[in-house]
């Protein structure tokens, strides 16, 4: 097939594929999703996605813009609840518990499944208050000394403590972009989540700040399960163990990151990672 594969051909190739190629499932999964459909009003954004996310693994979701990878990510902590017209169907389980069960409190879910956003969004408060925000609202610590320790520990884990230890009372919004994003990561891990969702966490950062964040992700993997959406294939290759390729709302291929980038099985995956469209 020529390099100028037109959209119609792509669509027909896509219609052919039927089920996801590769190994979407794993044993003892942390998050397990089956037949997930997402609709924005009458517009279907996710078609029948089934995917497992293993414990302490970093899984990268890649795909062209508008392929539904962010939408899928936001289903995992019910962030889509904030959008009135959004409807999610299918089965999503966290440690075997239904995320969308009637009696599941989304607030508690989000304390277990934290999220880091594309654009650093520190609160207009001090660095300390930013990190202490989550522990305070969940009542995690019982006194000031414990809270101080937790804030310090979270900042250390996020690799930010050295840079800010002398100005914890300075506003978080005064930090550089990369520092702000690490502050947001510190804020997220201060709540002690089990899973961290990252929506293109480095796309607004320069290469040096990106490298620091990527190192941090590899470090965090020891204690957390991480789902990262990224536009940078190099980044996916560097930080993740498994990679899932989304296209037009469907999950095309899942596999070991190495295998996806060296020997993709599906033609669409190959075209995307070799940079022929996307």
């Amino acid at each position: 097939m020529s390099n100028q594969t037109d959209k119609a051909t792509l669509a027909s190739m896509h219609a052919d594929h039927g089920t996801t190629v590769g190994q979407p499932f794993c044993d003892n999964a942390k998050l397990s999703t089956r037949n997930v459909d997402v609709y924005y009003a009458d517009n279907q954004a996710i078609h029948d996605v089934s995917l497992d996310i293993g414990r302490n693994e970093v899984i990268a979701l890649i795909g062209p813009s508008g392929c539904g990878k962010s939408t899928y990510l936001r289903c995992l902590n019910r962030m889509n609840d904030t959008i009135d017209i959004c409807k999610v169907t299918g089965q999503l389980l966290l440690d075997g518990q239904n995320i969308y069960a009637k009696n599941q409190d989304p607030v508690l879910l989000r304390a277990r499944v934290g999220m880091v956003f594309q654009k650093p969004n520190p609160f207009p408060k001090s660095i300390y208050d930013n990190v202490a925000y989550g522990p305070r609202i969940h009542g995690l610590t019982s006194n000031k000394a414990e809270l101080d320790d937790l804030v310090e520990e979270s900042l250390i884990k996020a690799g930010l403590f050295k840079e800010v230890k002398d100005r914890l009372e300075a506003p978080g919004t005064g930090l550089s972009g990369g520092q702000q994003q690490r502050l947001c990561i510190a804020r997220t891990i201060a709540v002690q989540p089990e899973v961290i969702l990252m929506d293109e966490p480095a796309s607004a950062l320069d290469p040096i700040a990106t490298a620091i964040i990527e190192e941090l992700i590899s470090e965090l993997r020891k204690n957390y399960t991480i789902v990262i959406v990224t536009h940078s294939m190099q980044q996916a290759a560097r930080v993740s163990q498994r990679t899932a390729y989304f296209h037009l709302g469907k999950l095309i291929e899942v596999g070991e990151t190495n295998q996806i980038f060296t020997n993709p099985k599906h033609e669409l995956t190959e075209k995307y990672i070799t940079g022929r469209f996307g």
């Binding site: 969004n121 609160f123 207009p124 925000y133 609202i137 804020r187 997220t188």
Partner: peptide, 27 residues
């Protein structure tokens, strides 16, 4: 107030009213 502030707070497991009192009103 930018939507990202609301999402940041909700994403940490804050309730709507906590988000309003601690983030939105000060901003």
């Amino acid at each position: 107030v930018p939507q990202s502030m609301r999402e940041g707070s909700l994403g940490l497991g804050a309730t709507k009213s906590e988000t309003i009192i601690k983030v939105l009103i000060p901003a």
